[in-house]
Simulated assay, not measured.
Amino acid sequence: MPITFTPISRASEWSGNSWTISSDDELAKLVAQVALGQSHFAKRVLVETGFRPSSPGSTTLQGAVKLLSASDPKKPYHRDGWLFQVISWIAAHLQQPGGLIMEPHMIHAHKGFDGVHVHLDGVTGHVERVTICEEKATQNPRNMITRIWKEFEEMERGDSDHRLLSEVIMILRLGSGIDVDKAIENLIWKNRRGYRVSITVPTKADYLELFEGYDTAVAGDVSKRGSEVLPLTNMRDWMAAVSAKAIDHAKKVVQANV
């Protein structure tokens, strides 16, 4: 698989993983499938050995290339942000095979949750936990994280409960055989939520200092505070290279179907 994981943590404050990209090519192929509107098939590739997705139509290529391109090469922030959210989605499926995970956005700079994961209790069928994700490609991770803490504090106050509930219902409806009414019973009022920060960092980042203040922004058990990092030496250059690989792969799979 294209990403491997090494656990990281700090006592009772937070826990998570450091990611290593084991194959840029394999990662780019999955990203290309998502960009072509085939996230359903990309998910099956991640969990089913030998699964081969169907070929996309040529009409999907233009939109895929747009997603994988920076309109201004000097300002690739939106392209890189979208790409990192897809990488985080791939990582989440590798960590939770078959999980109920919000599909990737299909536009740059989407206004809303970066990601939402829904965990069901295997006995009762109720929602056990909803994990709200912030997924950021940045060259200044500490500055970004201090902004994320403010957003998490707002979510803890319930400022986004209406949007969260709507998103959870949409995710549950994609699951097979799920009783949606039963699953969301008392969801918001019992405060069954956790958080997951996924962020790019320099290769020699001090993770202990990076997530300082997490337990202040989000109180409670350490399981509520997830921290995922992707160390990269030259983040912007790497994002551009993976995007170029993904565009090449998207063109190949579309041409093969013409």
Rank of each mutant, 00 (worst) to 15 (best):
S15I: 00
M239H: 14
G98L: 05
F84H: 02
Y195Q: 01
I8L: 02
E209R: 13
W19L: 10
E156R: 02
P56H: 09
H126C: 13
L208D: 13
L230Q: 00
T203M: 10
G177E: 15
W149G: 05
S54F: 14
S55R: 13
I199W: 03
T200L: 06
L232H: 02
W19H: 01
Q96P: 02
L30V: 03
V222F: 01
S198H: 08
A219M: 13
W19C: 08
N140Q: 14
S88H: 00
F84E: 05
K29V: 10
W149Y: 12
V180Y: 04
N186Y: 14
A11G: 11
L208R: 13
Y77S: 14
A240M: 11
V201N: 07
D114P: 02
R192V: 03
G98P: 05
T59M: 13
A137P: 09
T49A: 15
V253D: 00
K74A: 15
K204W: 11
P76L: 10
K245D: 05
S58K: 14
Y77G: 13
T138A: 10
R147P: 07
I178G: 03
E228P: 00
K29L: 06
G63L: 06
G115C: 07
M235R: 12
I132D: 09
Y207L: 11
W82Q: 05
Y77R: 12
H119F: 15
A70N: 08
T200C: 06
R142D: 01
D114K: 11
L164N: 02
R10S: 04
S55K: 12
A137W: 01
G220T: 04
G226T: 08
L68G: 08
N143S: 15
S71W: 09
K66M: 14
Q96V: 11
F211R: 06
L120E: 02
V86K: 06
L100W: 04
I145M: 03
K182C: 15
R147A: 12
W14C: 01
S243L: 07
R193K: 12
W89K: 04
L230W: 07
V86Q: 09
H108K: 10
G16A: 06
T146M: 14
D159V: 08
E128N: 12
L230N: 09
A92M: 11
T203G: 09
A42C: 10
V229C: 03
Y77E: 15
L165F: 09
D161F: 04
Q85R: 01
G99Q: 01
L100I: 02
D161P: 02
D161Q: 07
L68R: 09
G177H: 14
A32N: 00
A109D: 15
D80C: 06
V45Q: 13
V201E: 10
G125P: 06
T131G: 03
I188A: 05
S166G: 14
L27G: 04
S12Y: 08
E151Y: 11
K66G: 14
I148S: 08
M1Y: 00
G57D: 13
D215S: 13
R142G: 07
A183D: 09
S22H: 11
K252F: 13
L27T: 04
F5C: 08
R157Y: 11
V218E: 02
E151C: 06
K29G: 07
T131M: 04
T203H: 12
L61E: 02
H119K: 13
S9D: 02
E228Q: 14
